[in-house]
Design a protein around this nucleic acid. Structure first.
Lengths: 158, 158
DNA sequence: GTCAGTGCAAACTTTTTGCAACTAC
DNA sequence: GTAGTTGCAAAAAGTTTGCACTGAC
């Protein structure tokens, strides 16, 4: 897996006339060692601790742009800071987001995946996708119900 | 439509013990006069020109949070600044995003919409959703092909 | 040797926060 | 009258940019 994405990235850099710097490969490798979402800060810290490399934030931003262009990384923006995710061989882009507590969960659903993949677009070539389903997680749903009941009682008494 | 969302918002404010300030209703009304996406800056300017109200950005951010909680507005984050969109009676949350030029297009597909709506989630209550399909628009696809051909020629000559 | 790429810090943009003034209740 | 809201300005958070230095080609 890591070897494969490294090859893809090398090829991408060659074709587009970019240099093959050690920083770029260290970043790619670190990204593919992370499961799930990460942001620039997490990536910065992970690189700082596990690798010998000290890579600046500016370089992280630069490299992420290349990796997105090479279809090796995708960007999400749930919260305040952008979240990224490895893209190669990773089908997990269906998200449940609780509008109350903000918790993000990934889920699997083959029927849904097929429906998206099979959709025909006019004048557009699909490369990848991401679905965000908003609603209430079970915890917040229960809290909401309690709250409503409480407010109804107050309003009825008025 | 505007009257309906105003009623929903009024109810929401009552139930949650928030005040019914003129600023809040002016913001709601302006949002529902906008078609498609908008960001805080656009909303600020629109309010400044069309309404008598001068509403600060802080108030816009505060109110948007209430409107999201009341399920009247949803938030996207494509580019740098957050984009928002009215949510009531609006089914257009399927987006095509060109990874090259960044163009965002909304599209309709009833089969896809049904597939999403019919998906059963465990311990999660769907309220709304948003699908982002990434790829190349026809313009950038053509540009990409030209570029690849050019690079192949260069590499072959080497 | 050359120029793309890097690190650093400053600049910029967007969003959040603190506080005094205001007003819906 | 009294909290919840607002406006303003300052602060914070995230990202981009300018510039001198470095190293891949």
């Amino acid at each position: 897996m890591r070897a494969t994405v490294k090859r893809i990235f090398t090829e991408y850099l060659s074709i587009n006339g970019h240099r093959k710097t050690p920083e770029r490969f260290a970043i790619l490798d670190t990204i593919y060692s992370i499961d799930g979402h990460f942001n620039i800060d997490m990536l910065y810290q992970k690189l700082a601790e596990q690798e010998k490399f000290r890579v600046s934030r500016a370089t992280l931003y630069n490299t992420i742009i290349l990796l997105m262009d090479a279809q090796l990384v995708m960007k999400h923006q749930f919260g305040n800071s952008s979240q990224y995710e490895k893209l190669y061989n990773s089908g997990m882009h269906l998200h449940l987001i609780c509008t109350q507590c903000g918790k993000v969960t990934e889920f699997q659903d083959d029927a849904l995946r097929a429906a998206i993949q099979d959709t025909k677009f006019t004048r557009f070539t699909l490369s990848h996708y991401s679905l965000y389903v908003y609603g209430l997680c079970s915890k917040c749903e229960r809290a909401q119900k309690r709250k409503r009941k409480l407010n109804n009682n107050i309003n009825n008494k008025k």
